[in-house]
Simulated assay, not measured.
Amino acid sequence: MTRAITELSGVVSTVCDEIDTGGDRAMTAAPVLPRSTWDELVQVWQNLDLPNNGWRAEIIEESIVMTPPPGYGHNVIADRVHRALARVIPENWGIFQTAAVEIPLRSNLFIPDLVVIPMDALPSDDDPVPVPAGRALLAVEITSKSNANRDRNEKLWGYAHGGVPLFLLIDRFAKDEPSVTLYSGPSDGRYRFQHKVPFGEPIALPEPFDFTLETKEF
């Protein structure tokens, strides 16, 4: 279950309980807010009173979407990927599960399930200031039943527009079989390359990671 909130003329209101991305529709159009309006929306996001620390709030095409904590299957995969990344990245990079990245051009602010960001790209204070998406080196999303299409569509599109060089989509609920897809080479709002493997097969992450992620325990 997810909940979406829109901010219009300073008024926040609940608009729906479930988000249907609309498939291809989500890949072809998105609103673009003026910078001043975007900053106001981010301020609303920063001041949200979430039910508890496990909930996440993101801005997806002008709507603030709140998502409850994921289940253990999701968390186990996140833990395994985190451990694998921690073994290969340098100490001056961080792996985060609650860091927000923003793509103002497309009115998006995402909190990836995992994101790798150089430490020197992080904000200097404790305020929940989003990091420009282009400073991330890798974003990872793990699908849940309630938001799988959002990860496959809006987030794929958003990360490409934001210039995230590598996007790893771990799709537990893919139509044919669970799969892992690595998207790379963002250009003009799309990823030029993708490599997909089913759960159980390894997938190689290129430079600057240069390692193979095992998926047999997903």
Rank of each mutant, 00 (worst) to 15 (best):
I203K: 10
D125G: 09
I203G: 04
R35E: 13
R87N: 11
P104C: 00
T28E: 07
T21G: 08
P118H: 10
L85D: 11
F218P: 04
S179H: 01
P69N: 06
F209K: 01
E177H: 14
L109G: 00
A84R: 04
L33R: 09
S9A: 10
P132M: 15
G71C: 08
P178G: 10
A29T: 09
G134M: 07
I89Q: 03
T14H: 08
L122W: 01
H82Q: 12
A99P: 00
Q194F: 07
E177C: 11
R106L: 09
E91H: 11
Q97T: 06
E58Y: 02
L114V: 03
A4E: 12
G189M: 12
A148I: 01
P186V: 09
G189T: 10
D24Y: 12
E40D: 15
E207A: 15
A148S: 13
F209P: 14
A204Y: 09
A4R: 15
P206C: 06
E207L: 11
K216N: 10
R83F: 13
V140E: 11
S63Y: 07
V42A: 04
E58F: 01
P90W: 05
F110D: 07
D120W: 04
D120C: 03
V129Y: 07
A160T: 02
A136T: 07
T143F: 05
I142G: 00
Q194K: 13
L50Q: 01
D20L: 15
P130H: 08
D120N: 14
V65T: 05
D24L: 15
G73A: 15
G158M: 05
D210K: 14
L8C: 14
L138T: 06
G200E: 07
N92I: 06
S63C: 09
P202F: 01
G163W: 03
A136G: 03
N153Q: 13
P69A: 04
L109C: 06
N153G: 13
A4G: 14
I77P: 12
P208H: 04
D20E: 14
N47L: 13
R150Q: 15
V81K: 05
A160E: 05
S107M: 04
E141I: 03
D120S: 05
D113K: 13
L105R: 15
L41K: 15
P104D: 00
R192Y: 05
E62R: 13
E217I: 09
E62K: 02
E7I: 14
I5C: 06
G54K: 00
I95Q: 13
V164W: 00
G185S: 08
R87E: 15
I203R: 05
N75T: 03
H74Y: 03
S187K: 12
S146Y: 12
L156D: 03
A57P: 00
P112E: 15
T2Y: 06
I60S: 08
R83L: 14
V180L: 07
L156S: 05
N147C: 12
V115G: 01
V42N: 02
G200S: 05
D171Q: 00
E91I: 08
L48D: 03
L182C: 11
N53M: 00
F218M: 12
T215F: 06
P118F: 03
C16A: 10
P178Q: 12
A121P: 02
V115H: 01
R190C: 08
V15I: 15
F211P: 14
F218T: 02
N149G: 15
V88Q: 09
A26E: 07
L114T: 01
E207F: 09
R35A: 15
V44G: 03
A99V: 02
N92E: 12
